[in-house]
């Protein structure tokens, strides 16, 4: 190795060593800081009371157990035991073991009754062992599976929504595409091709409306569904009217009519979509009724 290579090696390796030392010192300081954290007890800190920083298992096994900790644990276990005794007699411990000589060190596993596996829902609500643990996250307790049976009304509404949505999708009266058709009508000055496209669109609306009117079911939503179907027809007729150009004044009237019809249609569409949410019906992506779900 030449002298230049040696120098280069030293230049490269020195910062790495320095960084390593800094990281080690930093890590050690953090570990030391964590160990020095005081445990707060009634009447002062662990340091001030010379209880020291015993790990949890040592609190139960050490010969130097502080009395207040033992008392606290005994109180908790007794309350747990008593509450269980009342509500679950089948799990009541042996009466000979319920004396005041209940020892923490040796009797925990033996005497503490476990919550029943097949108890009723009411019992579970009345007695919750997690309540005995202070500061336990309530979120963990609330993660219970929803075992409620599906409401038949919801199923009916969902089926209706899927049929309704699938029909709309089938006719492909797509708002994104229709804007181009409507723009062309104005831009191309009502030429025959643009008129034909608009008339075709209008016809789609009317046919869609007729098909939607035939859909039965969805008791609670049927009325709203029929209104929306009629609104589709009105949009179709208003769109058809736009092609009947005579002069600007007449066109202006037709435009105002078209706009008001579209506004009415939009209100009905939104109302209809909102009803599914009101009944707690949700559609997943790919289902016919997903067009009634709000955008994510």
């Amino acid at each position: 190795m030449s002298s230049i290579q040696k120098k280069l090696f030293i230049i490269l390796i020195t910062p790495v060593i320095v960084i390593f030392i800094i990281i080690t010192v930093f890590a050690l300081s953090i570990i030391t800081q964590n160990n020095k954290k005081d445990i707060v007890y009634k009447g002062g800190t662990a340091n001030s009371m010379r209880i020291n920083r015993l790990p949890t298992k040592d609190i139960f096994t050490s010969a130097n157990k502080p009395n207040n900790v033992i008392n606290k644990v005994n109180t908790l276990l007794n309350s747990w035991q008593n509450s269980t005794k009342i509500k679950h007699s089948a799990y009541t411990p042996d009466p000979t073991n319920t004396s005041s000589t209940f020892g923490v060190d040796t009797e925990i596993q033996k005497d503490v009754p476990k919550p029943p596996q097949d108890s009723t829902k009411q019992d579970n609500e009345q007695f919750n062992p997690w309540d005995l643990i202070p500061n336990h996250s309530k979120q963990i307790q609330s993660k219970k599976p929803d075992n409620k049976a599906k409401n038949p009304v919801k199923i009916t509404i969902k089926t209706y929504g899927n049929t309704y949505g699938s029909t709309i999708k089938k006719y492909a009266v797509q708002f994104g595409n229709q804007n181009k058709i409507m723009s062309d009508l104005i831009d191309k000055k009502y030429d025959e091709s643009s008129k034909k496209s608009v008339l075709n669109l209008a016809q789609q609306y009317i046919e869609l409306s007729n098909e939607l009117l035939k859909i039965n079911g969805g008791d609670a939503l049927h009325s709203s569904g029929q209104k929306l179907a009629n609104a589709y027809k009105n949009v179709g007729l208003a769109t058809k009217n736009l092609t009947l150009y005579t002069d600007d004044t007449d066109t202006l009237k037709r435009l105002y009519t078209y706009n008001s019809v579209v506004e009415d249609f939009t209100k009905k569409y939104l109302d209809f979509s909102t009803l599914f949410g009101a009944y707690g019906v949700q559609f997943s992506e790919g289902e016919g009724g997903d067009i009634f779900m709000p955008p994510m």
């Binding site: 708002f175 994104g176 409507m182 066109t251 435009l255 078209y258 506004e263 569409y269 939104l270």
Partner: peptide, 26 residues
């Protein structure tokens, strides 16, 4: 940012009639 529905017309001027079609914002 949002979602839009059917086609709608913005009337900018009456004389001469100037209109702008666009999608109605829901």
């Amino acid at each position: 940012l949002g979602n839009a529905g059917p086609s709608y017309y913005c009337i900018e001027r009456i004389y001469p009639l100037t209109v702008h079609p666009g999608l109605l914002i829901l």
